[in-house]
Write a protein that binds this DNA or RNA. Structure first.
Lengths: 121, 121
DNA sequence: TTTGAAAATGATAATCATTTTCATTTGTGA
DNA sequence: TCACAAATGAAAATGATTATCATTTTCAAA
């Protein structure tokens, strides 16, 4: 049982509260932090165990970690240039909740992404 | 552009309409079918492109393929047993459209999944 | 029937995230 | 200082997925 390295959590916060293990690792390297990839993985895993961060999945299956306290939001992503806009999802929250209730699901979370071509492309 | 090998689809059906690429491959091997892993992946991918099967993710990130109807819909997935309910997403369609308009995006698509614990678990 | 281009196939190698191993370092209490 | 447990991280292992590329199959036209 390992405890989380505090610098990992702090980096995840600085990353906007939303990143993969590889991204956290690269970010720490770029900032001159001395840390091993193994420790980044272990720390993130233990943060998930402690319910301090959520574990989600990118479309390609890569694990992404999100601070639980972060305000929940969604993304509007350009398929061409990758530009991303954070958007509100009030309608989604209500939809997810009502669907879950209707089918007797509990402890529900959700993912929702919109992708298209932005005005610049 | 490759078309799907029909034996792959038939195997996925026989598997209960729900399996990973590796599982489909092993199942076909066990049944004496001569097919390569590459072809299994390609066939499943093209079935996804043709919207004949849905691509979801196990907790560990492994891709799982699931037969679905043609009508656009979303999923309510149990994190514990994998049980899946297909649900309507009228609210999502409107939300995605209005968000895209607001930010000048065109050719938009979207993904939305709800996950939780079902009443049986 | 023969031919040839395009599509499909599959063995193999490459990729890439993640996990495991294990030797070393660090922290801590006696 | 000593001993020992916990933490660390480099390197290897793992496992799914994708890329390569030579070979085979399909099929329509000659």
């Amino acid at each position: 049982m390992s405890r989380s390295n505090p610098r990992v959590l702090s980096t995840l916060e600085r990353a906007g509260g939303f990143a993969s293990a590889q991204e956290v690792y690269k970010l720490m390297q770029r900032e001159g932090e001395k840390i091993g990839l193994t420790t980044v993985y272990r720390s993130l895993q233990s943060l998930v165990d402690d319910k301090i961060v959520d574990l989600l999945r990118r479309e390609d299956g890569e694990a992404i970690y999100r601070l639980c306290g972060e305000k929940h939001h969604h993304h509007l992503v350009c398929k061409s240039c990758g530009d991303t806009v954070e958007i509100e999802g009030g309608a989604i929250e209500k939809w997810a909740k009502s669907m879950a209730d209707e089918h007797g699901f509990r402890d529900v979370g959700h993912t929702a992404e919109i992708f298209g071509i932005c005005s610049k492309c």
